[in-house]
Write a protein that binds this DNA or RNA. Sequence first.
DNA 1: GTTAGAAACAATCCT
DNA 2: TGTTTCTAAC
Length: 749
Amino acid sequence: MQLNKEQQKAVLHVDGPLLILAGAGSGKTRVLTNRIARLISECNVSPWNILAITFTNKAADEMRERIDDLVGLGSESIWVATFHSTCVRILRRFIDRIGYDTNFSIYDADDQKNVMKEIIKRRKIDTKMYKERFFLNVISSAKDELISPEAFREQAGEDFIRKMQADIYEEYQKTLQKSNALDFDDLIFLCVKLLKQDKEVRDYYQDRFRYISVDEYQDTNTAQFELVRLLAGKYKNLCVVGDDDQSIYKFRGANIKNILNFEKHYPNATVIKLEQNYRSTQNILDAANAVISHNMGRKEKHLWTDQEAGEKIGFYQFDTAYEEAEHIAYEISSLVRRNEFTYGECAILYRTNAQSRLLEEKLVSANIPYKIIGGINFYSRKEIKDILAYLKTIENGQDDLAVRRIINVPKRGIGATTVGRIQEFADEQGMSFFDACRQIELIPTIKKAAEKIRDFANFILVCRTQLAEGGIEAMTKYLLDATGYIDDLRAEHDEEADARIENIEELLNKITDYEETAENPTLTEFLDEVSLVADIDNLEEGQDYVALMTLHSAKGLEFANVYISGMEDGLFPSFMTITADDESEMEEERRLAYVGITRAKKRLTLTCAKTRMTRGEMQYNKVSRFLAEIPKKLLTGNGRQEDALPLYQQANRGFAQARKSFRSEDVYGVARTKSSKAPSNAPKAKNIGNAGAAGKPDYKEGDRVRHPKFGEGTVTSMVLGGRDYEVTVDFDDFGTKKMFAQFAKMTRI
DNA sequence: GTTAGAAACAATCCT
DNA sequence: TGTTTCTAAC
């Protein structure tokens, strides 16, 4: 495919700041990659001097691949990375210049919460009034805005609450520093601090990165803006790509002004608009344009396509969310059967992760292969976090949180009281928790547990030797063996434990894979990679399954056939948005709708339900107001736009209070009953996509089996059809179901 | 110190 | 409804 005029103009631009306003589906990645390739082949730029920043690893990998294809030899020295991994790489080299150790740990949301919990306990703050989340949010937005604890205190003045927040921010930051740990926001914040403070480091990177590109620029926050400004400070060969209409990350500090005011920040900037859409049909594009046109204060764009109108947009309304999910599953099933789409071409999008459950259930019973992107990250599962805490302890003994997590896992008879005493001693002496463990005989209050603690500390030291001698994989295997972690799980003999074992094996695979592919594998680097994976990174292309994800995760992706479910006022736009007295929040929500609609290439279906269970409560929602914004002639299906709040009433804020909400008992007059005893909270072992290798199932006709969703049942028939067994099971609580063995995660009992 | 069962609480969206 | 925290009993 040829580049169009505007695309060419962007590709040919070499020196000076460049802003590319790229509408949805306008081929921005092509432009970015082609421009970089040309810099090298035509303009004599060394690959070593090029930096390309993205937001997700997936985007980075994709860009890397495409650049590799274009550039060939030498492309490996181009620095293509996410904001966070870029900062980690810089900090791993130079952070010792600002008071941390270069083998710092990275704390995830869970770790942050634990740190905050302790601070709150120590300060005897009433958790009813102030929750951990509240303070963490305050701290996070402060860091996004590059406000240090000191600056925060200054700004607080005499305000009581602000002063309390300042105290907590300061203590939180001290705790992290003492553990030699950085949270996600620190990665950017401290990198900016380093570059600002240290001229030598700044000069080094400014000189190295002569050509910088930033993708999804509309999502940058103040800290990221500053980082880019510092890096590009010398040569100012900065190319940013973005679309203000797709700015959907205000809640994590994204500042839309970064893109809107680019020309002010970089006065001689060239601006290029990419307005031809190569992705969607005219109808889809018309709907997207109609919705987004209700926003004020955007950069005017005229997205157009030379594709034909295509199918109308489906709009379906159901009585319950149950039926909604059923319909989607049924439709996908028949479209695939008629060879109109493959599973891999279909995606189901929703506003909140919680909506995935129902959809999942219906896809399972319709035998549709699927993969849920997001929800619980693989690396935040209990068993994985345990093992990683061991690895972190081995890597960085100062990481108190990691040490305390595993000191009694598996059970070593070291309880909360003992841990408390060690911590107390460590605090008094100003040493780390692990160092206190190593000198346990100095702690007078500990007698009985002393030996156990000594054993634990010695064990960690042995692991360190193992690591040095045999590498990560060998050491981890030794560790699992010596602690009996897997044996303990195996002894539990239930499917939940089995799933955990599988997850650990998966982790081992990742370690092996890492050690085989990395140039110079180190435990630190492995832990970095693990800490920085996003859910969306797990979506593999070319796999034949339906993708389920939130609208946020879907940004940057495209699918031939897209469903947006839960198009209801109160869900999408969210209840929070409707009740907030801030029109800009509604605009952000509308941009999210725009992002969702523009994901579709050929076929788009919007669905909603009149009733929906949320947190055990029955909710009655109107049709989403965004549906009222789509011209009627573009729609087909049983949905009634009239059931949405009419446009002229949408400015009226009073109605939110009138929303009705009953407890389910009140509606049906029945108490809630316990359903089947199948543990629905069992960790989902592996997602369907990986299950392909499964051979013959270990059950046969007449066997009793257990299914994660449907509980126990009896196998009534098993037929080999196509490439997999078709199993029919008579479930005790759910009746008879027919499914493919490969996708039904059933075990014999 | 450990465990199970009950009570309390909670969800936007993400690197 | 699903998950975390609290409490009591071993």
